[in-house]
Amino acid sequence: MKSPLNMGIGVGVVILMVASFFYKVSFGGEFIPSFGLWVAAWMTLIILSFLYKDNPFYKAAEHIMVGLAMAYFAIYYIFQVLEPRFYNRLVLNELQPGEQLFGSPEVFRWALIIPAILGCLMLTRIFPKVAWMSRWSIAATIGLGSGLAIPVTIQANITTQIRAASQLPLDYMTALHGNAEVMPGFTNVHLWQIGVPLLMIGTICGLMYFFFSVPHRGVFGYAATFGIWILMIGFGASFGYTVMARLSLFIGRVLFLLKDWLDWLPT
């Protein structure tokens, strides 16, 4: 907002927005729902204005979003986690049946002081002299996360995937016998017959590409090359899906403006 012209345009846009809202409300719209709709529409238009160029409205909206998102996250965590899991149990003594430690609900209740102390130690990061104490709570969080990650990732991403891949030969035999229902919604049995071996070989070759303990030469090199082709198909599919997801989000916003806000399209 450096030049008077830009300032004038900015003030004009704000006046236009406010005037248009009151114009709409004066024709029978209810105040609070209409106001919400109009605020949402203004926010949408302000963000879209960035497509022309960076401007103070967009910058303000950007900062509004950061403030709101942080506040929403904090409040959500307070009411969904700290209140039911900590405050209600420790301060209000509202324990569920079966919530006990070493056979005693009281031990369970008072043991909650330990995470509270560790949580408070995290706040020592604000004070440089005792900031080192925050490492204790960080260590607890990192340790819990790491300990949880080992069995969970092995189970979800290795054993489950191996189990699903082991099922493939059985599916392949079923497909060879002409049962097109082997994959829901997939009626072309020939494509499926090609797909099953490709899926098995593709997975193995993809893993071979990630195996760097052996030089990628000879037969191993060919397999790794095929693996990178398969990986490229995966990346291409992800890219295409991401673009279309963003596009559908954009269509959603345009429909919101045209249908909900301006009422130009039939509902």
Binding site: L199, G202, T203, G206
Partner: peptide, 21 residues
């Protein structure tokens, strides 16, 4: 649909296994 359930799954499975390790 074929790409999403065949080569894409093969790629994702390889990536998931590698990342999990």
């Amino acid at each position: 649909a074929w790409i999403m359930v065949v080569p894409n799954v093969a790629a994702k499975r390889a990536i998931f296994m590698g990342a999990a390790m």
